[in-house]
Design a protein around this nucleic acid. Sequence first.
RNA 1: CCGCCCGUAGCACAGCAGGAUAGUGCAGCAGAUUCCGAUUCUGAAGGUCGGGGGUUCGAAUCCUCUCGGGCGGGCCA
Length: 581
Amino acid sequence: MSKIVNETQQQIRQAILDAMGKAISEGALPAEPICDFKIEVPNDTANGDFSSNVAMMSTKAFRMNPRKIGETILENINLDGTYLERCEIAGPGFLNFYLSPSYYSAILKDVRACGKDYGRSSYGKGKKVNVEFVSANPTGPMHMGNARGGALGDCLAAIMDYAGYEVSREFYINDAGNQIEKFGLSLDIRYQQLYKGEDAVELPEDSYHGEDIKERAKEFAEIYGDSYLEKSEDERRKALIDYALPKNIDNMKATLSKYRIEYDKWFNESIVHNNGELKDTIELLKANGLTYEKDGALWYKNIEVQTKMLLAQGKTQDAIDKLELKDDVLIRANGNPTYFAADIAYHRNKLEVRKFDIAIDIWGADHHGHVARMKSALDAIGVDSTRLDVILMQLVRLTRNGEAVRMSKRTGKAITLVDLLEEIPVDASRFLFNMREAGSQMDFDLDLAVEQSSKNPVYYCQYAHARICSIIKKLNADGIQIRDCSDEELQLLTDETEKDIIRHLASLTEEIVDAVKKYDPAKITRYTIELATLFHKFYNACRVVCEDESLMQARAYLCICVRDTIKNILNLLKIEAPESM
RNA sequence: CCGCCCGUAGCACAGCAGGAUAGUGCAGCAGAUUCCGAUUCUGAAGGUCGGGGGUUCGAAUCCUCUCGGGCGGGCCA
């Protein structure tokens, strides 16, 4: 919370407590313990700048009606020396507090004093957090879900950094296991088809049918010719994978970089396969007696562990039975570990080996079935599963000309992230994909998204910024020296539109913390739109250039606060804040 | 069948550790520029918060049942 806002809330709380204490000692209120109460910002400023529900909360303890309690507090309250001007009682018994002019000037001074750091806080207390997002399969191109996940993850990481966490962005590369074999097989067949014709060798239904596979095979053929047709299948597939996989990964890096996403760490799944951590993890499960063998495979006792967790959460055995929990395979009958096994080892690596305090994964909602068993497995190896938070993101549905566009990696006809970035400016993509909370389904209208018009909220925000820059330029051009302002001068900003802006500026820090708590960067894009709206309203209601020199300076001061805040937030989200457009 | 997510104005969405008259944008209607950027602003209109029950001073918000949409329940990832 901003320093000033925090101070103000504490002043209110203290004033209420003092008033109640006084009333109790004078016998106006019964000598009962004072119960917990809230201080919040009402939706409608007609109900004050801050309000408290203390009177309603106290009805039971005091056995008095809330209105009477409120009046008693009001009679005893003293607001001298605070940022509050007055207090009123309203409705069922709300105590509504009104800010004094000193509050408004203090907020503006604080915005300027903090500069680029305005909005930062130490809420996260320097905790190490790992945000893993996108983590697309390197076997094919990235799709629109990755576009949303990328914008969401990167911006979440950014606001967490702002809220005082030590953030690391991570991409998990699935470079091992089944899908890599399938990748090799698909490449192999495309390669053979180049020489033998499409009908000679058939591509199985469940392999990768994308155009990119054909391309990689073709590129490979351009380098090595048909020489690998002679070689063994294993050797040929390995060579194809060794060529195509790094190429795909490089492409992903380049594309994400264009999307302004830079990872701190690209983590290869193969690492835990090769460095013994996967084996250690399985040994740990074995040692804890949570595995068994069946049908030649090694199984994890998910039912047992998860039942224990659910019972601890207060679920009944009946309810748990209805879930029809299942055990999961760790090592297949063919000796290969499953994705699940590797994933346990990977999360153990994040939380135990690399000692992150919190791991956040952003997954498509279609993976939600994986969450419970992942957490159960972490508990099973002695890692507190509450340190893992999974954000399930509803998949994006594309529409074009009002019709849904299918996005399947298999058909090879999906609109890729590369396509998207060619069509839509990065600023707009990053902003638009952060307009909705992760959990809500999202229709992405390609026609509208491609449209570079004022309908696009990002332009609306950027325009507000450019407009302010233009005003400042105009003042300078007129030979007006913008200077610092005294508190008294800033207190000339009494228009409702001016006060609205200042109150909104005051809420930034809390807004960011709230967005972090809810893992919802969309709150910040909405905050920015609101700030731009409030500025445009002010612009239409008040003129910066005016007769009163002090008022003009105060308004210029306000403009600079808004300009800098918009720029800070946009830059935080890695979106440009142009000075003209 | 079981589970998770979603259902708020014509459309897209906020609001959800209970609070005051349910908000914002777009579309549509009526207006505003001799003046700092009209990519802007002002106003009116638009609602059984999917539906029924419950909890209480108070429910869009919590519980329960129900209806509709999305997704999942692989020795796939």
